[in-house]
Design a protein around this nucleic acid. Sequence first.
DNA 1: CGTACCGATAGCAGGCTTGTTATCATTGCG
DNA 2: CGCAATGATAACAAGCCTGCTATCGGTACG
Lengths: 129, 129
Amino acid sequence: MKLTDLKTSEQALAEDLHDPAFRREWDRTAVARAVALKVLAYRTEHGLSQRALAKKLGMTQPQLARLEAGEHNPTIDTLARLAQTLDVEFALDVHPRQRTPRLLSGRARRGNAIASYQTDTGTILLAAD
Amino acid sequence: MKLTDLKTSEQALAEDLHDPAFRREWDRTAVARAVALKVLAYRTEHGLSQRALAKKLGMTQPQLARLEAGEHNPTIDTLARLAQTLDVEFALDVHPRQRTPRLLSGRARRGNAIASYQTDTGTILLAAD
DNA sequence: CGTACCGATAGCAGGCTTGTTATCATTGCG
DNA sequence: CGCAATGATAACAAGCCTGCTATCGGTACG
């Protein structure tokens, strides 16, 4: 893939985001996409197949594939399983739009934020470490 | 109600928690109970009826009653609505059992934790401010 | 070519949360 | 007492996430 291709796909995404329906879906799955990246990174770094990691997580390969697809927001329960098995900490911050998060450490706000999006009713911020 | 009554109900809870099934349910709804307290406190402090606050939140009175009952864990979306309307920040931290949370500020860990529980697969911590 | 493993996906059942309407008992007030 | 407002609750539909089986195309290797 050439750099020009990358640029085009980013531009295509920016254009798609102008579609209100697409934008809603994009925002809705923000947490899902963030977690998906974290899981995929862990799996490749450890040279595991989906089946192998799924077994460690107590789930099946299609379930893990769905997680990595990032289409569904994981439940708190699923987050806990990931945290325990991957030895990762997830911090989710929900706060009013006109406010600055105070409960999340500056460390998390600066370096570890992997998802952040605003909804009509607040701002969501997900950090992982 | 006398102090002795309070003590008895606390003791009763402690005994109920020995029942594995009850304990699972108690843990599962930890976040729900914490949020319920926050909502109830806000509503009484502002002298609002369930119907009045429900309207501000864009929901019906039975829905708010259910929230205050603390039986269902709210979704991230519901948390966002609460945060925006009540002007409250929620921080949810999920981390492995053998680890100390680093993404949540010490401030939140000390003074604002309103729910904390361990599952087989991790620890959940909810703070509000 | 055949075999094995890989990741993606369809299809389905089950559980949980949301959202709604319709009550119900209780309390306060005229 | 009659009336209005309050909070709790039942019953139901709908949406989303989980968990599973089965299957598919693609790739690597003998």
